[in-house]
Design a protein around this nucleic acid. Structure first.
Lengths: 287, 287
DNA sequence: ATGGCTATGACAGAATGCTAACATCGAATT
DNA sequence: AATTCGATGTTAGCATTCTGTCATAGCCAT
């Protein structure tokens, strides 16, 4: 009852929405998930199949099938047909967005989306593969990042640690970098995330890592001019969207691509580790 | 200046149209028929199948199949997938990027960009203003987030703390939530960031916060169905892009919009605090 | 006309999508 | 605690959709 706003908006009431509304209140947990997903993805529903919806919502295919029947459709084909005859097929989707992307926030969203697309130029560079290889083949990986991207760096470490062993977050202040004393691991790699001005300690850290014989990957923003002097593995994200505080969305997107690419170097291991992860969390009693 | 396509009509450039254009001039008779039909029926293409297209155009099914491969799609399924990312074509300069965005990483980038655009639907909801107001007017703001989005939550806290006072990160484990004992602040607000399954403690925390009389803002993903029962201030990001590890880029983008919107409630103060921040850091001797 | 070439289609097998029947799980009731 | 019932998943089978192989039709140059 609290999401009535859809009805007074420009959204035309579609047969599907009507049926969802009618079923509301008498739904099981899985069905509620499906109903919500259907409502939020109406525009591209016709492009889905039972299996893809199942994968995206985390229920089983048969539950999707049953839910459709519950709504009164004889199956996916019937739903598509319904969407088609009403003309609600899809085109709405993007045009709908465009209308919403007016105003100040809309501009910021567009800039962020464009910055994400611009990542394409970075992953297309030959250095990208080199960087992924460096991370993949390293015995130990260190991740660092400061201030307002420190959390992004830490999340990146967590995700990468799901994929491979020996990934550590280092911060110049507290750890004292003791782990960098020449030691067991011959083949080490530092990933520095530095998209903030004023973080003056980053350059010394890179120098130190180089001295210690590490490969160094730097993820930074367009204005950074010093990193290239130390390593060819420098990647840029657009961070200036001219908000009060700059967005780190594109940075997070790039970092997720790094994780993905490293995982793709050894898909079997990655899948196995991913599958084991939830279990591991439970066994640790943390969640 | 690079958007020359305005000259040949208002037709927006989609990945499909680009490919049709590229193939143009080197087409067989049947292919020309198909190309034309594809162009005119782009909006409902996803609802067709190889056989239905064959019937409507008068060619055979296999020719449709071959034509799709000629365009660079591996089949109908691939085309449908491409159509789903149509929104990305609406961005400035995307004609340029689209060329780079082939392959697996390209698909992931597009999905991320699409997910960012979809944020538009969230900020357009009336609840958005309510949430910003709740955060802006609260005496104290608590931020929480777990596992692979914990860092994002912490970064968000840092940034929001630049804009306003009394922003705290809370984690159920260590802090024990002692700060939530009924106390000095009457008007408090919790921002929960929960886009990960398996984070089972989040629901109790929201319940606790509600009991303590707080306003609650939840930022979650599409499959979350429980949050709406506690608060209308629930906002969704698309997190499923089907990488090995899901991207948190769109989440970070949304969070930066929250920060921005809160700052925009009191621009003078925000600007002043932002300007003072670097100085503050230096004085603390941290950077 | 003949030969070589490409475009197209027919058919069958592979792949994928959908659902019925049974199995399992968990919550509510006794 | 035991029982029941509904929700959900698993397996398996059929239906649909897609594509590889081979055959035929049309075109062009000789």
């Amino acid at each position: 009852m609290h999401i009535m706003n859809d009805s007074d908006g420009p959204t035309p009431v579609s047969p599907l929405l009507l049926r969802l509304k009618a079923a509301e209140g008498d739904l099981t947990k899985s069905e509620a998930v499906l109903a919500q997903w259907f409502g939020r993805n109406e525009s591209t529903l016709g492009l889905e199949t039972g299996a893809t919806i199942a994968a995206k919502t985390g229920v089983s295919e048969i539950t999707v099938s049953r839910f459709l029947r519950r709504l009164g459709y004889r199956g996916m084909a019937a739903l598509r047909e319904d969407l088609q005859t009403r003309g609600t097929a899809q085109l709405n989707g993007s045009e709908f967005y465009l209308r919403l992307l007016d105003g100040e926030l809309g501009t910021l969203i567009r800039r962020d989306a464009e910055a994400v697309l611009a990542i394409g130029t970075q992953v297309a560079r030959p250095e990208w593969e080199q960087a992924i290889e460096a991370i993949h083949s390293a015995d130990a990986v260190y991740v660092t990042g400061f201030q307002t991207v420190r959390g992004a760096a830490e999340d990146f470490r967590r995700r990468l640690a799901i994929i491979r062993d020996h990934v550590t977050f280092v911060a110049a202040h507290d750890s004292g970098l003791a782990e960098w004393l020449p030691g067991r691991h011959a083949n080490r790699c530092l990933i520095l995330i530095d998209t903030v001005p004023y973080a003056r300690e980053t350059e010394p850290i890179v120098r130190l890592a180089k001295t210690a014989g590490m490969k160094v990957v730097v993820i930074t923003e367009e204005l950074n001019t010093w990193a290239a002097a130390y390593t060819p593995l420098v990647f840029f994200v657009v961070s200036k969207v001219h908000a009060y505080v700059e967005s780190s969305g594109p940075l997070a997107s790039l970092l997720s691509l790094v994780t993905h690419s490293v995982a793709a170097r050894d898909p079997e291991t990655a899948k196995a580790r991913l599958a084991a992860w939830p279990t591991l969390l439970r066994e640790l009693g943390l969640f």
